[in-house]
Write a protein that binds this DNA or RNA. Sequence first.
DNA 1: ATAAGGGTTCCACCTGCTGGAAGGTCAATA
DNA 2: TATTGACCTTCCAGCAGGTGGAACCCTTAT
Lengths: 132, 132
Amino acid sequence: MNIGDVASFSGLPAKTIRYYEDIGLVQPLRSANGYRSFRQSDVHKLAFLSRARALGFTIEDCRSLLKLYADTERASSEVKQIATEHLARIDQKIAELTEMRATLAHLVDACAGDHRPDCPILADLAMMQEAN
Amino acid sequence: MNIGDVASFSGLPAKTIRYYEDIGLVQPLRSANGYRSFRQSDVHKLAFLSRARALGFTIEDCRSLLKLYADTERASSEVKQIATEHLARIDQKIAELTEMRATLAHLVDACAGDHRPDCPILADLAMMQEAN
DNA sequence: ATAAGGGTTCCACCTGCTGGAAGGTCAATA
DNA sequence: TATTGACCTTCCAGCAGGTGGAACCCTTAT
């Protein structure tokens, strides 16, 4: 399979697939003409990566997950730990964004948004200047 | 004011302040010895930037906001638009993360996380391989 | 023969900093 | 006065995770 086919199959751009090869996540063979030649297992790996990335796992997480995936003797606890840590990071991020959202929504709400220059958003961002 | 003082005052690392000068967000003067010399207005700008960045505005947003801030003739609608677009981006991000979180939490929940190799997390990530 | 549509490499760029090396400056102390 | 230590300076490199483009090769059809 050439890279274009793999791209449409895995949903990853060809550029990304080349990048994944660069950083050692996949090792496709090469045809006589120099084209990358992907085996079924490579395609599976890439689909795996595509899904893992879509769930927000970092590349390093993906590397670990692929290793565990390949090791049929792994303990599921190892996988669960990676996923649990990632879940905590997501929760953290959601909490941060939610707080930002609240503040920002409040400001947007307070701003008339008309032709006049008075703007609570700028006033809040400046704050210190207010005390001036 | 030297960069160290400004850093502790604005809450931004000195490195970041230098970077902000690099990209033209602030233009401090220079003392005879070559040290950056920050006026009150620079310090205010940096505090403004610090708050705007904490609310997740991009650097380019900040650039626009600073320009609007400096322009006492601005229409508040211009500010509101930037903030509203940013709010939408935040909502988008929260939605994505929330979906990720749901899927991941479901998987983590389903995984025994013990010494055995059976793992629904890997199984789900692989999917295609399942059909193999 | 040539044009279209694959593929290849390499290098630069994106966001928003951060770290480190190598050196200049300043105030206080031994 | 020498020297320490805490400042400051510049410049260069790197992080994640790709993306864009240039310049080129390969294959197939017309």
